[in-house]
Amino acid sequence: MSLRLGKISYLNVLPIYRPIENGLIDHDFEIVSGPPSELNKLMDAGELDISAASSIEYARHPEKYLLVPNIAIGSRGPVQSVLLLSKYPVEELENKTILVSSQTHTSAALLKVLLAELWKVSPDFVTGDATSQLESGNEFDAILAIGDEALNLRYHPSFPHRVDLGESWRELTGLPFIFGVWIAQRSSFEENPSATVEGCKKLVEARLWGEENIRDICLLASESSCLNQTEMCSYFDGLVYEFGEQELKGLTEFCRYLKRNGLLEKIPPMDFLSL
């Protein structure tokens, strides 16, 4: 049975999807690409069997999903691709306006947690595409940029203050932050458990391949990016693809903060697929 596999359309998942898409790992996936927000919607609608997804998507609908073990995407400090770009120091953003990327759910929630818990300010939010808004001449006090857009905009001259949300989370908690997880539909697992388990094993296999060949991935990624090979390697060095004990603590702590700030009704159980 072909499994519908969701792929985030960002560079940060290249180490995992490169061996799958190039046939280095045998599989039976039908791959669907899109930004995190779109994959979240497809998973919520039951239109994908397994997918990379925003951490908050799992947290909001744990009854629908099972976490895939041993694979996630996060950071243990600076992540470089989730940035608050601001005209002012973050402590001066009270009642200012922040443009939040429409492509993200988890990073937007993380920003709200950090604003409330770390910086103690309450700005206003609007949602939109940062690149197109800037090209149109629209002005904002700050921008939350994620993924490839953050890498491209991080030295924008209009925003002298750059805050890395991965580093700010570590400042607040001392823990890794998990921006994305891989999740399987509970219904897909119930209908065909062997195929679902096998598909998840392929993802973990791909993760291990990517980690072993990360320097080749850096070179490949730099060929079509604004980052050179050294900068690209620095970027990938800051990412975490493991889902170990500390990463689980970080995700659980994030859920606690979400609930405390009214962004989540209850803390979800962390239910993993058994591989």
Rank of each mutant, 00 (worst) to 15 (best):
M1N: 14
S2D: 09
L5F: 08
G6F: 00
S9F: 02
H27P: 08
F29E: 02
S37G: 00
E38I: 07
K41V: 07
A45P: 02
S54H: 04
E57G: 10
E63A: 02
P69I: 02
Q80C: 04
L83N: 10
L85P: 03
Y88M: 10
P89H: 08
V90C: 05
L93K: 13
S101C: 04
K112R: 15
V113D: 05
T127F: 12
Q133S: 13
E135H: 11
A145G: 09
I146Y: 05
L151W: 07
N152A: 14
N152Q: 13
R154A: 04
P157E: 13
E167Q: 08
T173P: 11
P176R: 11
W182H: 13
I183Y: 01
A184T: 06
A184L: 01
S187M: 12
S188N: 10
F189N: 11
E191L: 07
L203S: 07
V204G: 06
A206W: 04
W209T: 06
I217M: 07
C218Q: 00
L220Q: 08
E223M: 14
M232C: 12
G238F: 08
L239N: 02
E245A: 13
Q246H: 07
E247K: 09
L251E: 00
F254H: 09
Y257F: 14
R260L: 12
I267F: 10
I267N: 03
P269F: 06
L273I: 03
L275I: 11
